[in-house]
Amino acid sequence: MSGTAVAAASAAGAGPFPTLVSPEWLMVNLGSVKLLDASWALPNAGRDVVAEHMAERIPTARFFDVERIADPESQLPHMLPSEAQFAAAADALGISGEDAVVVYDSAGLFSAPRAWWTWHVFGHPKVAVLDGGLPAWKAAGGEVDTSPVDQAALHAPAEALRNPPAATRYKACLDAAQVRSWQQVLDNVSSRAEQVADARPEARWRGEAPEPRPGLKLGHIPGSRSLPFASLLLDGRMKPREELAAAFEAAGVDLSQPLVCSCGTGTTACILALAAQQVQPGTQVAIYDGSWSEWGQLPGVPVATGSGGGGDGDS
């Protein structure tokens, strides 16, 4: 079991709700949590995560569609929806504000932290990520459900979001302090009031490898630090706390200071945010929601390349 995941002995109702839980913990507490499969894949990955969910899932899990439970008007990938839209999706998922929620994904630890952050940023107090996701669950001997999926229930959350009702049972309240816009990030390039950590592979941060989405500039936000999300994981699970702390330190990130996390689309940035909470619970972390899919196409914003943190590009 990962050194950061909460042990099975911790009951879902005992003490502060964890942010990361082990398969053993989930086996003990499966009946007292609402479980969400938040699997998502890059467009060039060749995967169909909906089909994967339909084929097998942890018992009782509903599908949390990261791509569609998002702002339907935005041209950017899976940007945060409005409070009303998210509340409508929560209602369709059958989740109340009092429920304990556990999210997982079929890759191990990839997109589930994005779902964790989304619930957290909308004010849900009890939400955790399953460390290692479906692979770790199966490796620990957990059962999987292969029965047919109700198609109406599968797509109901995203469909409800498109036309949210005037009143919802779930009450979402966006904490704007946990979200950064491109303008805020641009202002920070000059002020350096907040640290910025980039979760993309280092070659993409340097501008030496192509982006998976066409038409984007190559490089990084000036002043940002490279902290690839994969450096925080081991065999699809979060590394022990001491190793996470060392990774942040090696990247030049001080978790006692405000931190903004970025990546390609605002997904793996949330792995950094989740890891920061394992090292220093309650640390101040925000996500640049548009991330490089937005910054990389904006005209006139500075772009740095190579290992330098300054604005050595200005395209």
Rank of each mutant, 00 (worst) to 15 (best):
V149D: 08
F248H: 15
I58V: 01
S231F: 15
V66H: 01
L93H: 10
C263L: 04
E294T: 11
A156Q: 08
V21C: 02
K217W: 09
V144T: 15
A89G: 02
S291D: 08
G296P: 06
M79N: 15
A250T: 13
A41S: 15
G97R: 12
P228K: 10
Q151P: 12
W119D: 11
G264S: 00
G219M: 06
L218M: 07
S111V: 08
W119T: 10
P214K: 04
G132Q: 10
G223H: 09
A245K: 14
V101W: 00
F63V: 06
F86E: 02
P157M: 04
P23T: 01
V144W: 02
V129A: 03
Q257E: 13
L161D: 02
A193V: 14
N163K: 04
P23N: 01
A7K: 08
M1K: 13
V285H: 03
T283Y: 06
T4N: 06
T146P: 07
A38T: 07
P281R: 08
I287N: 14
R62H: 11
P125Y: 04
P148H: 02
T305W: 05
Q184C: 04
F17E: 00
A152S: 13
L42D: 13
T4Y: 03
F122I: 13
A5N: 09
A275V: 07
P210M: 01
P201T: 04
K34Y: 14
G223Q: 10
E143S: 14
A269C: 13
P18M: 01
K126M: 09
C270P: 03
E211R: 10
G141R: 06
H155R: 15
A167H: 08
A199Y: 00
E294N: 10
V189W: 11
G46L: 05
V50L: 10
N163C: 03
G15N: 00
T60Q: 11
A304H: 14
A167F: 08
E56S: 09
A160V: 02
P18D: 00
V33G: 12
G300W: 04
V196P: 14
H220G: 09
R204Y: 03
A199S: 06
L186H: 05
Q183S: 05
W137H: 11
E52N: 04
D99F: 00
K217D: 10
A11V: 14
A55M: 05
A276W: 00
T146C: 12
H124W: 09
E194G: 06
A172H: 08
S293F: 06
A172G: 09
E56Y: 05
H53Q: 00
A12V: 15
A304G: 15
Q75S: 07
G133R: 05
A176G: 06
W119Y: 13
T305R: 14
G219T: 06
D65F: 03
A9Q: 09
G310P: 10
H53A: 00
R200G: 01
S315C: 08
P16C: 02
A100P: 14
L154D: 07
G132S: 07
L134G: 12
G306D: 11
L80S: 07
L161Y: 03
P240W: 01
W137Q: 07
G300I: 01
V149P: 09
V253Q: 07
M1E: 13
I69W: 00
A139P: 08
K217N: 12
G123H: 13
P212E: 02
P157K: 04
D91M: 00
A140M: 01
A61S: 01
S10E: 11
L26D: 03
A140H: 00
R192G: 12
A199G: 04
E143V: 12
